[in-house]
Amino acid sequence: MKVVYERPHALLPVVTNYCPGCPHGIVERLVAETMDELDIEGETIGVAPVGCSVMAYDFFGCDMIEAAHGRAPAVATGVKRVHPDKIVFAYQGDGDLASIGMAETIHAATRGENIVVIFINNAIYGMTGGQMAPTSLPNQVTQTSPYGRDVATAGNPIRVSELLATLDGPAYIERVCVDSPKNVRKAKKAIKKAFQNQVDGVGYSFVEVISTCPTNWGMTPQAAFEWMRENMLPYYPLGVYRDVVADGFANAAEAASARNAACPIAHPEKKGEN
């Protein structure tokens, strides 16, 4: 008999806590497949966040660390500084990454930590029952924006990929989604590229996955994807926001150096040249 589909080795044979129709399962599978294909499970340390994927430490087969809310990039930094030759990734949701953990997110990115960050953006706090997230859309109804997110008082959503792309640290930033087989394949490609970048020492790689939360959005999985396509994708356009390799650089450091070429103190090697 021919096996056409099986569980990746790096995904443990356990039942997850995710709701039916939740894209977390898809994305975690893509990460696990990547670990299998690059043969890095034994060398990988993952960092789980606080949020729906809080228990990802029980799902991934690699060594795992559970971080405090928002602190996964700092924890990942600590691990990577001890084991620069191992593979380290953080897996975070929008409240964790873009609200309470924004400082850790920005600074790990600008330091150019050679890690992978997978960002699940579903515009809502899932675990706590559907509160407004930093990425909730204008007028989006949540438990804590019952009349819709009023940007005049609750502020505007944050486009994290665009924000991080302004920094010199990141090597690769791409926004994907997993609402169709085609998009799942694209997402897989992005995730695999992010991990490959780390293996190759290219630098900090960030993959934002526009996602859904059928339970807290109060929709069927199909309707949720429809709502996502209709409302989220115009606000959070898919695509590559930074790719230093495609830009012709070997790594993020080279790209950063080219970006700040006009700053003398950043380029002592040019001293004396005119």
Binding site: A67, A76, T77, H107
Partner: peptide
Amino acid sequence: VAAINMVYGAS
């Protein structure tokens, strides 16, 4: 906050 969480990771 970040420093102690880096300690957590490194430990």
